[in-house]
Design a protein around this nucleic acid. Sequence first.
DNA 1: TACTAAACGAGACGGTACGTCCCGTCTTCGG
DNA 2: CCGAAGACGGGACGTACCGTCTCGTTTAGTA
Lengths: 209, 209, 209, 209
Amino acid sequence: MCSTTPRNTRTGRPRSTEADAAILEATRAALVDMGWSKLTMGDVATRAGVAKTTLYRRWANKNELVVDAVAVLFDELELPDLGSLQADIEHVVLQFAALLERPETKTALMAVVAESTRDAPLRERIRTSIVDRQKRLVLDGRRRAQERGELSADPDPVTVDALDDLIFDVVAGAVVHRALVSAEPVDTAWVARLSALLVGGLGAAAALG
Amino acid sequence: MCSTTPRNTRTGRPRSTEADAAILEATRAALVDMGWSKLTMGDVATRAGVAKTTLYRRWANKNELVVDAVAVLFDELELPDLGSLQADIEHVVLQFAALLERPETKTALMAVVAESTRDAPLRERIRTSIVDRQKRLVLDGRRRAQERGELSADPDPVTVDALDDLIFDVVAGAVVHRALVSAEPVDTAWVARLSALLVGGLGAAAALG
Amino acid sequence: MCSTTPRNTRTGRPRSTEADAAILEATRAALVDMGWSKLTMGDVATRAGVAKTTLYRRWANKNELVVDAVAVLFDELELPDLGSLQADIEHVVLQFAALLERPETKTALMAVVAESTRDAPLRERIRTSIVDRQKRLVLDGRRRAQERGELSADPDPVTVDALDDLIFDVVAGAVVHRALVSAEPVDTAWVARLSALLVGGLGAAAALG
Amino acid sequence: MCSTTPRNTRTGRPRSTEADAAILEATRAALVDMGWSKLTMGDVATRAGVAKTTLYRRWANKNELVVDAVAVLFDELELPDLGSLQADIEHVVLQFAALLERPETKTALMAVVAESTRDAPLRERIRTSIVDRQKRLVLDGRRRAQERGELSADPDPVTVDALDDLIFDVVAGAVVHRALVSAEPVDTAWVARLSALLVGGLGAAAALG
DNA sequence: TACTAAACGAGACGGTACGTCCCGTCTTCGG
DNA sequence: CCGAAGACGGGACGTACCGTCTCGTTTAGTA
């Protein structure tokens, strides 16, 4: 979780795990109060009841800290089986939209992505901590739809992977763009239209072979 | 273009219009060299051969300046008639992807969007300078497809607007997410899959009514 | 007075002379309250009602600032003609001792001298700002004693200079050592013994040729 | 030698005497390399191959450690009988000057004296570890000169003590001032002038009674 | 021989000050 | 009045040490 790998040595005083938790919690609180660009390391340290050095001992910079602080929130997303592909999509999209409405994610997600365009380690951290972890939702949903017979079972794993990636970018990208760029509400009507478009498109793709 | 409305007074030395252009050019150059978060007003002023006061007389802050500096780049997007909806989509998506590959847009777009989540005037400026200006592409493409008969002509303008907005968020969002969040290449194969999905989905939606 | 020579250019806002004075005054106050080793640049800035950057724009470090802050105090020393060499010596020694009793000089003088052992520019600054300026007292006193006939007038200027330097080191060194190293009071009895020793030694030297 | 008195208990692992020596040696080395103000406890610990806690178990702070580290160097001063007061003075002054030329004493002596102006325990430690130990040189020299008949034997012990103290401050002060404040060489010519002045002054004082 | 208790190295801890960078404003002079 | 130059008060940065603390590991003297 921390940016520096835990030391291999076993000498010396061990790092405080309470400090870790307090810092991440304080970071989320600071994101809510200040937003990403006004968040300062000193303020996070103060909120966490921790010295600034303790932050820097664990995270190299603000971006890595913020990624870790918000990554855990993305793990709350779930994909219960609601009986149809469209219902599953609508449910997870609404969940994702609710997550993006939270002030800590809203201000932080795009900011760290923006920073990651010039920071390869940060990009990698975002990928492993957030992006890859959420692809499971697409994989589960697609597999389940195939089991239901809503989608044909493509035998080529490469094609399947590419399709999963495409769906992931389309769904997540559309929601993020609607919520943050267009700054319009992700309401049930919009979600219904999006999922209809997707289900139709996937069905047509299947029909075409 | 400037944040302050042009003054009505006609006394005194008039503002230099060369300065305006030099500042925006310098801003783009600074974005390329430093990225958004390392860009400083002082550096932009120096690059533009201009005093800091001259910047602040025209733009209230870094974000507004950056929006103006990159907005013009988005006007380069065009939608030539390539004969089919799918071809039109693929063309514009590739253009958009190329635009997002440019270092000045890559680093700036998500950053100002992130800032705009806590800055309503900035949100408005992004909408008018960038977002709304690009919706014309969707509108033109959709209208052209209807004229070709690829899409049915829905008589309800509200439904049409909602569909245009959906398509805009899906296309733009998917490309941005692919390029910046997933950090995977927007290549012709991916673009073909995306446009196939869209065309299929729109056709299915039309078939369903 | 400041460590950086005033710029040659005449453009831009000129430096505040009030800030200069306020900073030196605040430095002396901080020396009194905190002592040299606990004095911080930030505290001096706060006391002076000035930003830290304003300090650093003028002085490269704490030592140069402190030298400038205390140097002016040494200019208060005077050598009125009291009619005899011994009286003149006793008077100036008591003045010097009183100066060394002031908390700002007591804590600062030895500290900057200690630092100057590894800092040639600081050594030079101490010499020009403090040491050389006080040698005038020795020169005046010696010349006056020669005019009175208490000392023979040596025709060789090199010998005279060497003697002035010796007297300066003996008198200043003895007082400093008594006050700060031995940490014993520089009272009238001790001063009387010191001046008697000096006058006797100078007389004997004159007698010997 | 250590600041804390040896514990009375006899259980547990005894303190390492090698550590004591290594620390003092490391302190002198650090003084040479870094100077007093850049010397850090952590660096001394590292040089000594010792943990920081081991330092703090023995010395309360940097100043006390430095006093102990340099005090031993002052014990090297000796006063061999060279047959005349002037020769004795010149010899010890040159020895003292050589000691002050060593980088570890040059940087440390004035620094700890400066610190001692606001730190009574340190002042006491300096007195007992350094100052009082060197007064023996004056006492021996003065007694020896009286035995030779160069100085009259004053029957009043109070007067004798006061004279010893005066000579000590004059000699030590003059050398320190010459070497560190005036930053001029303590060469044989200067030493000859100083001792001539002193011998003359003491003789004149004796003549006057 | 095993126990005990202090000293040890290592290094994390809360904290202070550092000196730098940039902010956005203000103050000067010259055009 | 505009613009350049640059000083201003202010805030945050990331680093270096401080002196303390908590670990697990010696180590000498006792039991």
